[in-house]
Design a protein around this nucleic acid. Sequence first.
DNA 1: ACTCCGATTGTT
DNA 2: ACAATCGGAGTA
Length: 183
Amino acid sequence: MRCAARIVETEAYTGPDDEASHAHRRVGRTARNDAMFGPPGTAYVYRIYGVHWCLNLVTGAPSFPAAVLLRAAEPVLGTEAMRARRRLGVADRELLRGPGNLARALAVDGALNRHDLAAPPLWLAAADAPVSDDQIAVGPRVGISRAVEAPLRFWVRGNAFVSGAAGARPHIFHIPTPPDHAR
DNA sequence: ACTCCGATTGTT
DNA sequence: ACAATCGGAGTA
């Protein structure tokens, strides 16, 4: 069954200087975070709490460990297939809400670590309706214990599919519009 | 070798 | 408030 979803919430892990990143300097390159050092556009999938999988999009140049954690998405296609992977009776808005749930619903596991996200069985595509900058809210990341204040969580303002994970403070502000020459 | 704990979730 | 569940990371 083919599924599709629209990403509505992410977190950025920006590189060796990011205290909260699995690939922070103090850690270096390890077996777990190695995929973060791979080429941009590939997947970094890791297990958390020995229980859940989390899906990241690798975003840095090769050997520079940066990634974006996908925290929530809005089901577009194949809703029933997603529900079957979760639990029967789960509401649509819970289907892809939270990084562990999102991975579960999309059948993401460790086998997809390093996967090229331009190819089946899992790939990114341009959204039908692009999200303009002023629709995007920014705030602190969820569930981390270092660099707690850094405003690196991004979500679609007011979107019903965004996760409400404990610890997510509603400190919201606009992304500054970049100057034209930076576009 | 051994302890600690996490980019979470669901139940009590 | 807490269990599930396990391997990476830090310490020795």
